[in-house]
Amino acid sequence: MWVEAYQKDEQLINDIKTSIFQTEGFRVWWLGQSGFLIQYLGKHLLFDPYLSDSLTKKYSSTDKPHTRISELVVNPALLDMIDVVTSSHNHTDHLDAETLLPIFEKNPTITMVIPEANRAFVVERLKCALDFPVGLNDNESIEIHPFKIYGVPAAHNVIERDEVGQLKYMGFIAEFGPYKVYHSGDTLWYDGMVEILKPFKVDIAFLPINGNKPERKVAGNLSFEEAARIGKEIEAKLVIPHHYHLFEFNTEDPENFVNKAHEYGTPYKVLRLGEKIEVI
């Protein structure tokens, strides 16, 4: 199996920059795995990018090979318009130095948002200043104009906190203008999840679908069925699936999600790699 990008590199960058002065609505591009780019009023928020082959190289000679099954969408050094970037937790496909360092170099005024519990780990991996990342916990938010970002729990596989009670795995709600989107990070369905998310009335929920299979020897996520069901229960206006079609051993057929979304009456959109959706 090999998944080609709908658009990539310079074509993708041109698509992003063509609409940078648009004042109506907002736009979203899927950059693969859990990476999504939000464009609103000429500003750009990048959720959890993984745009390298660092994990494939790292695990190439192990019993857990990370064999890539899709194209890299964009060289991170081409992303010179990023205002805010997130890392929801410390796993490399959400905190990748080979992705983030070129982005930092091209965007010297960027703000990075992380779980506060992960500050020391993030600083060590990225060799950045201790006060560079902005840390959040649940029930906290930060405003980075025009975005207001809220921290919410994620269970990967459990809700884990440090010794002072700060979350190590998080999701993020981003509010901008009249819009709200929810990026799950990596998470299972946990008690109270619907009650936390439903009041936000999100326009888009970005939800993983690759499931939780212990034989993969990695922490799991929502299944395609759970993603369709929780999208319906939180009354998201749209669900966009993620965390599939990157590694051969840890993927899912998005058509299975589509079938469940139809069954539950969950509004959805499956994006191709590098594809844009516009919300007005």
Score class of each variant (00 low, 15 high):
G265W: 08
A155E: 09
L31Q: 02
Y264Q: 07
M112D: 11
E233P: 00
A227Y: 04
L12V: 09
Q11A: 14
Q22L: 12
G177T: 13
N250M: 14
A174F: 01
L188N: 15
H89T: 02
E160A: 10
D191H: 02
P254D: 07
P102G: 12
I82L: 02
Q39M: 14
E105F: 02
R216K: 13
K269F: 10
L31F: 11
I240Q: 05
H245P: 14
I142N: 03
Y150N: 02
L100I: 11
K57H: 08
P214M: 00
G32E: 02
L271T: 01
Q39H: 13
H66Q: 12
E225F: 08
Q33V: 04
I69W: 05
T67E: 12
L126W: 13
K127E: 11
K260A: 15
F224A: 15
I69S: 03
I230S: 01
L41H: 15
H145T: 11
D53T: 09
P214D: 14
N90T: 10
I230E: 04
L79N: 05
M112C: 15
N14S: 06
K198W: 00
Y268S: 06
N90V: 04
V279Y: 10
Y50Q: 06
Q166N: 13
T56Q: 12
K106P: 00
N259D: 12
F249G: 15
A261R: 08
L31H: 02
K57A: 07
Y59K: 03
A205F: 03
A236M: 03
I240D: 00
P108S: 09
D53L: 05
